[in-house]
Design a protein around this nucleic acid. Structure first.
Lengths: 171, 171
DNA sequence: GCTAACCAATCAAAGCTTTGACTACCTTGT
DNA sequence: ACAAGGTAGTCAAAGCTTTGATTGGTTAGC
């Protein structure tokens, strides 16, 4: 396989081979794992965003924040950042858009006047329910690439990777 | 587990339960798989970016483009977009930054004057070699969460998901 | 009470990505 | 030759994310 014949996926093989040839000390398996993880996730996210969310006028981050509120109920912006995995600044910017579009309401907290309490509007809840149904249908389409046993194994190994001690998220 | 006790990971369980309760038709397994995939990948990418790349003054996308050129050699911008998984516009914008910083050179193609040929500068190659060593060491740290057999299984299942027919990348 | 430390949120600047539009160039068919 | 269509790259506008700085509010120590 020369450099001329590569495509998006065979690039991973070429990268592993080339790195292994040129840099003796590297770990080819770890490299393949992270490269593949990154590419698959990007592919799935791009698909979700272009098929489900952009046609509805939303972004994937917007959906994630609305979904967070839908799952865990009204909460402070800081907590929404923790649960969704965004930074507080990102939540702040994102809520401006969602508030403008009438999907989220932002109310100053009674007991702590620094905080704002976020909640779905009725319109936000309706829109989320519709978008989530389409989102999940698309998830199923992806998941169907694997057998039930493979899906369980994949989810379990991913969770184990995510639980990695010593390499923790700091935000 | 009430909504008050959730954290970043238990949110996934809560989301699956809550969706299952409120919307009868959804596919909880597919949901868990995609949610977990997304969160793990974001965690790994954030870690790489904050530990390896930002301290060197780079972004993760910048690293990916340099790495693509390092693996497959000089190429047109369009091809770099295909292999790296970025859009042509994204490559165009990114190359402006990398060119400004002296890491990539952009030369008009002789035979097709529409095209530009991208290649690593000497400085770009040196910087990439250094960054890649650190990047791969960090990848190893993550991969060590799993046994050798688990790593192989995970990489294989991810590749199978990425090879999904009927749900293809369109860019 | 009052100051110091801390904390929630936002602002500002820079970077990446996206869609849509546009220019310049190449290629094909007549 | 030359017009029609396709292609490579860029520009523009909007959105999200990041780091670093700032504002306003709370809490703890003296």
């Amino acid at each position: 396989m020369t450099a001329q014949d590569l495509d998006f996926w065979s690039f991973v093989d070429a990268a592993v081979d080339r790195a292994h040839d040129r840099l003796p000390g590297i770990d080819p398996e770890a490299m393949r794992l992270v490269l593949t993880l990154y590419r698959v996730t990007n592919m799935v996210v791009y698909d979700m965003e272009s098929v489900v969310h952009r046609p509805r006028g939303w972004s994937y981050p917007g959906f994630r924040l609305l979904f967070t509120l839908w799952v865990a109920g009204p909460m402070e912006a800081k907590r929404a950042a923790e649960l969704s995995g965004m930074s507080r600044q990102a939540v702040s910017a994102l809520v401006n858009t969602l508030d403008r579009d009438g999907l989220v309401s932002k109310v100053p907290d009674q007991s702590d006047r620094r905080a704002v309490r976020l909640s779905l509007t009725v319109r936000g809840e309706d829109a989320l329910t519709d978008a989530f149904a389409a989102h999940n249908a698309r998830e199923t389409l992806w998941a169907d690439a694997l057998s039930a046993g493979e899906r369980e194994t994949l989810a379990r190994l991913l969770a184990k990777l995510g639980a990695r001690e010593g390499v923790r998220r700091r935000r």
